[in-house]
Design a binder for these strands. Structure first.
Lengths: 341, 341
DNA sequence: GTACGGTTTGGGAGCGCTCTCAGGAAAGGG
DNA sequence: CCCTTTCCTGAGAGCGCTCCCAAACCGTAC
């Protein structure tokens, strides 16, 4: 089967390659008659421009990469990455771009993928999710001059001009305020890994929020690793300290915490109030329904892709740091606020 | 910044473009001295071949697509797709290929993506997951002569020569046999959507497995849509029929069923034994630990990618239908088998 | 009738690579 | 010592597109 090309379409339509190219790319300065003839032929033949040839000539590929430099195993236990992928995909579809996925299973993967992506012109730019603090990916990208957008707070501000993040400290402060307002006086904290900026920010925000109300976690803290199991373990270890409430830095971990509470024969919210973070778990999947800080992950993924596209279209795009506000979603795991007052 | 190319590397190494190309592609018939000189220059300069140029000349892109023609919303509620992506990614990494992700949110997405992928040479081939019966994607791919591998059972055998699937009926029969062996006599079934081959096969296998033991679900059946909420709803609707056991066609739905049982004041496994399907949920995330039929999804994703690669390397690759056996993982949600006898 | 802007069109060059082929060098046999 | 075989190398062509420039065309104004 002979591949159709511009020249051939032009021959059939009685115009030149150049004119066909202009029609295909929707450029101005083409007469209506020529345009119609060409479009008819294209519809008739089902012609599609060849992506590689186009890339070679124009130095653009129409592909953006989504780079997730995390251990792959923990990746789909939490709905976070799925939602991020969804948002980025949706935006890519809208922009007629293609999304390529780069997951690293280990350090050597990271090396080989980075090497393959950089300088090969495979992608026009990438979205990178913040991984452990000190991860070298953003820095490598910056030095390679590959346009990229960071999702999450950069651990080093100089490394990336463009980033999209949630106000993690603010969200955690909301949680702290909520618990304080309900009269809880012995709050505990199950934090996310302290080698991630999200983990640090949520931790810090919660402590600060408590301090604003004259409260303190004292030694009622434990660290999880985002998994449900780690939340359960952490909660179990905190129970002897008799907390009357706990802020858990992710919903998935909060589910584990709820189980630990239930298995210890205690009840939520009567004995212990629980606030989660992310809002990615359907409300009716927990008993009681989990009060949590909302994190618009899908929207963030979407925004990351559109911002990246802006960078590609305009190399002088000014540095942009998008910050999403978090909101507290009050459900049942902390008891009733209004009726309590 | 001037882009490095073969010619330039050749100049620096004192050889021709062609020789550099041979070294880069690991071809034979290059003298050791030339090879070493070229490799030294490449290492020194950090040269990477330009993907688009290579594609244009060789008609291969090194990119494979993963096509998931499903409503995106339900996509990441179940860990299934995440695992599939993980497996395919891992294999792609090993093969030095890039994985592009194509998710459809609606019918118009499907149209536009398919159009963009086909004939543009964007990808060398694709992995397609089976969607609702009657979905046109596989047929379109076949007619476009784009190599592809189907994950799941094709609803029409003629549409795809290559497929990778799990023995869904066999797995469901194992579940039926297990319940029968434990002396359960009033089994119920919460099935997966009947417009998917997996849904049909698991349903059929379970009914058949029961029949082999002289059992029947009678009217104790309900259909879910893979979500946890639907599992809960389905179980709640079945409780008045007083089943003593239930086979749930996915773990996520089984978690919902467990909650329905608990909320009705019944206990599992004493009042109702539960068997799930997929084995994708960590054992300790359910109470009691869920007995389930294992589904090696990650491995299936991996195998799909390697099979696709074989097709690309050898266009005459014989039709291949890979079928994975399922295994029953006995945990606690059906009670003890050995000690009961 | 000529001159002049603006619009439309076609062709050349070139993006960086692979593939084929032919020629030169090295190695081995008579 | 010459001829054949094998190994290695370089040059040419071409993949299908975009970008740029110059030519052709159009209508209007003088």
């Amino acid at each position: 089967m002979q591949r159709l090309n511009l020249e051939e379409i032009g021959r059939l339509a009685g115009v030149s390659r150049s004119t066909v190219s202009r029609v295909v790319n929707g450029e101005a300065n083409v007469s209506n008659t020529a345009k119609e003839r060409v479009e008819a032929i294209i519809a008739e033949t089902g012609y599609r421009p060849h992506a590689a040839a186009r890339s070679l000539a124009s130095n653009r590929t129409g592909v953006i990469g989504l780079v997730i430099p995390s251990a792959a195993e923990t990746l789909f236990d939490d709905p976070y990455f799925g939602r991020l992928i969804l948002g980025a995909t949706s935006a890519s579809n809208d922009m007629e771009m293609t999304l390529a996925l780069f997951l690293f299973e280990d350090e050597s993967d990271q090396q080989s993928i980075i090497r393959r992506v950089i300088g090969s012109g495979l992608v026009d730019g990438v979205i990178v999710t913040a991984a452990e603090i000190g991860n070298s990916v953003p820095d490598v990208l910056r030095r390679a001059n590959l346009p990229f957008v960071l999702v999450g707070r950069p651990d080093d501000e100089t490394v990336s001009p463009h980033s999209i993040d949630l106000d993690n400290p603010g969200g955690a402060m909301l949680a702290a305020g909520h618990l304080a307002d309900l009269g809880r006086t012995r709050p505990a904290l199950i934090s996310a890994p302290s080698n991630t900026t999200a983990g640090i920010d949520r931790h810090k925000g919660f402590i600060e929020g408590l301090a604003n109300h004259g409260l303190d976690v004292e030694d009622r803290t434990a660290e999880g690793n985002w998994t449900e199991a780690s939340g359960q373990t952490a909660m179990t270890s905190l129970l002897p300290l008799e907390p009357d409430s706990v802020f858990v830095a992710s919903d998935r971990m909060a589910v584990g915490a709820l189980r630990a509470i239930r298995e210890a024969g205690l009840t939520c919210p009567d004995d212990i109030a629980v606030v989660g973070f992310d809002g990615l778990i359907p409300a009716d999947q927990t008993t009681p329904r989990l009060t949590t800080v909302m994190h618009p992950v899908t929207e963030i993924g979407h925004r990351a892709a559109t911002l990246l596209k802006s960078l590609l279209d305009d190399p002088d795009h000014p540095a942009e740091r998008v910050m999403y506000e978090s909101q507290l979603m009050i459900r049942e795991s902390c008891g009733h606020q209004e009726s309590a007052s």
